[in-house]
Amino acid sequence: MSARAQTLLWVAQRASAALLGVCVLVHLATMIYAVRGGLTAAEILGRTSGNVAWFAFYTVFVLAIAVHVPIGLRAVLAEWAGWRGRGRDPALICLAIFLVYGGMSAVKGVFR
């Protein structure tokens, strides 16, 4: 992989980390508010269904995870498992696709 590509991966991981920092805070604050307010699952779904703002927020959250996790895991696999071979990056792309698929399925579930 070229120096440019490796640098872009590094930037993507830092940028997605910054996004995740905000997303996790908003997510936790929302969860605490919902639980403390005594909202039921049905009431929560009632507020998220059809709400484009929540759909956009959690889509960004899922995409940030799908970018951040495989890049971080790439370094972990190299340093802890010694996996630097050719199969590593395709395997991580598969993981990214799986994270997008699984995450977006959940987002669609609460948007419907």
Binding site: M1, A3, R4, Q6, T7, W10, A75, A78, R84
Partner: peptide
């Protein structure tokens, strides 16, 4: 030099 020090074996590691 920047090309040599970028990436998995360089500063980004």
């Amino acid at each position: 030099r920047l090309r040599a020090v970028a990436g998995d074996a360089g500063c980004h590691a």
